[in-house]
């Protein structure tokens, strides 16, 4: 298997696995702690609308996905402050509407949509050079953002009302964080696929949460678990010739069960 590492497509895949693991480990810790898993699911699936339109217009579908996921993320954040709207129903509507738009435009596109499956289930071996640079930049940004602003992020997420009484820029942070999550989702689509991203954003954190109960430790351990999952999943997917998203999630669930088992034996 070592000779694999000489191929540039495989080197690309490894880089993509590492950077995606880092971004998902960090973004997922925020998502799980703040209990916005459902919101993140909504953003993910809405982005499929952008992928469909990207196909239809003949541009990179990820650009369409980025526009859709950013707009839906900012929309949800804005909406969450208007108490008269039932947030969960609105997210469900957006979720399915995004999928519907995606399907409509893909069917309207003449010819065969070659990489459709790779967007739905992930195809880490087809990640392009440009996409890797984008994921690398994002993982640098998200890491720096969380390192520099660790304290305000932690306090605002834990108790936004109290943070407001301390005059922290709560709304600014919430908009920035939800935008980072939207971008994380878009750039993880190629690795894990739309349908499976949500597990990459929750499984490492839940596994970490078995052993540690503070934000910083969950951040670090989630990143380690997520990177282990994406790299392991890459080899697994290659060996079995299956979609990478499914392989990664399968491994992450195994890690979670192993964590549960270790915890049980210790007690």
């Amino acid at each position: 298997m070592l000779e694999l590492l000489q191929y540039s497509f495989f080197q690309n895949a490894i880089l993509a696995a590492i950077f995606t693991g880092v971004t998902c480990g960090i973004a997922g810790t925020y998502i799980v702690s703040k209990r916005i898993v459902f919101i993140s699911g909504g953003i993910t699936h809405t982005s499929f609308g952008g992928i469909g339109i990207g196909y239809f217009l003949g541009i990179n579908p990820l650009i369409g996905a980025a526009v859709f996921s950013l707009l839906s993320a900012l929309g949800i954040e804005y909406m969450s402050k208007k108490s008269e709207i039932r947030e969960d129903s609105a997210i469900a509507i957006m979720w399915s509407f995004g999928m519907a738009i995606g399907i409509i435009f893909i069917y309207l596109t003449p010819g065969y949509a070659p990489n459709l499956m790779s967007y739905l289930f992930g195809s880490i071996l087809t990640v392009s050079q440009t996409e890797i640079i984008l994921i690398a930049v994002l993982s640098f940004i998200i890491s720096m953002f969380f390192i520099i602003f660790y304290k305000p992020i932690l306090y605002i997420t834990f108790d936004p009302e109290f943070a407001k009484t301390r005059n922290l820029p709560v709304d600014t942070f919430n908009y920035l964080l939800i935008s980072i999550i939207a971008l994380t989702i878009v750039l993880s689509i190629k690795v894990s696929g739309i349908i499976l991203i949500i597990s990459l954003l929750t499984l490492p954190q839940t596994t970490a949460g078995i052993f540690v109960k503070n934000f910083k430790s969950i951040l670090l351990i989630s990143v380690i678990i997520a990177v282990t999952g994406t790299i392991g999943g890459l080899f697994f997917a290659y060996a079995m010739d299956i979609p990478s998203g499914a392989a990664i999630i399968f491994l992450l669930v195994l890690l979670y069960l192993a964590g549960r088992g270790i915890k049980l034996l210790k007690l």
Partner: peptide, 26 residues
Amino acid sequence: HKIDYKFPITVWDTVLSGLISDKRLV
């Protein structure tokens, strides 16, 4: 009931959060 006490935060961090302000974010 305003507090999510399943949130992964320690007592120490919680108490110190009372000292954060817009003038000292980082």
